[in-house]
Amino acid sequence: MMRATLWKLQARYSPYLFVSPFVILFCTFLIYPLGRSFMLGFYKTAGPRNQLFIGFDNYKFLFQDVLFWVAVGNTTLYVIMFLSIQIPLSLGLAILLNSTLVHARSFFRFAFFSTHLVGQVFVAVMFAQILSVRGGLVNGLLSLVVGHTVQINWIGDPYLARVSLVIASLWLSVGFAMIYFLAALQAVDQDLYEAAEVDGAGKWSRFIHITIPGIKPVLLFMILVGIIGAFQLFELPWVLFQQSTGPANAGLTIVSYLYVTAFQGGDLGYASSIGWMLVLIVLMIVGTFRVFGFGRDV
């Protein structure tokens, strides 16, 4: 009798038991900090102990804060440069790799994908050396091509610094995007291509009218992921520019501005308001994608 009751109890209450560790931690470390961060946005703080309520002043100041807009500008510029190279390059590679003529497809797939396993910090350390003025791989290869010693300051020059960031970021993510495109290409109905060929459609028109519509969900997804990822960029530029915001703030991103404000300047309140602007920006981007009717795919 006793045993049977216990057995019934464990059957009834185990689902609660199973989710409770998650729920407790979820509330403590996600829901509470979320609400708290909203509150903090209305305070000026110096470290975790000194706080002063200032209402909307943080947000008012944010709109005149040159550094914040530099960060937004940097990110916008970066995302345009990055996506306009990443998408065509990875799609092109996927189309090449999808050809029936390819030998050793799995080798190439691993070669392209392997860069994605390297974390942003390690990529940044690597590329800081690869792009270094003396002894760097890129300047070395350029010297070979031109025939005399090239000493381009890839990291230290404010304009080239942005290029360097895009190069490192492309190395990290082209192979990753390619894997997605490859999977999408393989899902496109092959009969459509044959029918189009019979009808005399050229290669280009087959690409525009069959391939692009066929992979559209993945294409939009990769663009969205690229944009959101760009707005959350931190580790790559931060370490590439030796734990700074780069020459003339060329490597300043929204998250690095948040980081510097909170953990070097000690103003957790202002940093929170920067964080909420980031939330707003990301939600606006996702919202835009939805409004244009890509909702179910994204």
């Binding site: 961060s37 975790p48 990301v282």
Partner: peptide, 25 residues
């Protein structure tokens, strides 16, 4: 629970950095 979980999925986690730091402190 699932609705709240779903709602948090889109949030950039970085917004939690200052308040989480305070909590950990």
């Amino acid at each position: 629970l699932m609705i709240v979980m779903l709602a948090t999925m889109l949030l950039p986690a970085q917004v939690l950095l200052p308040s989480s730091y305070e909590l950990i402190y």
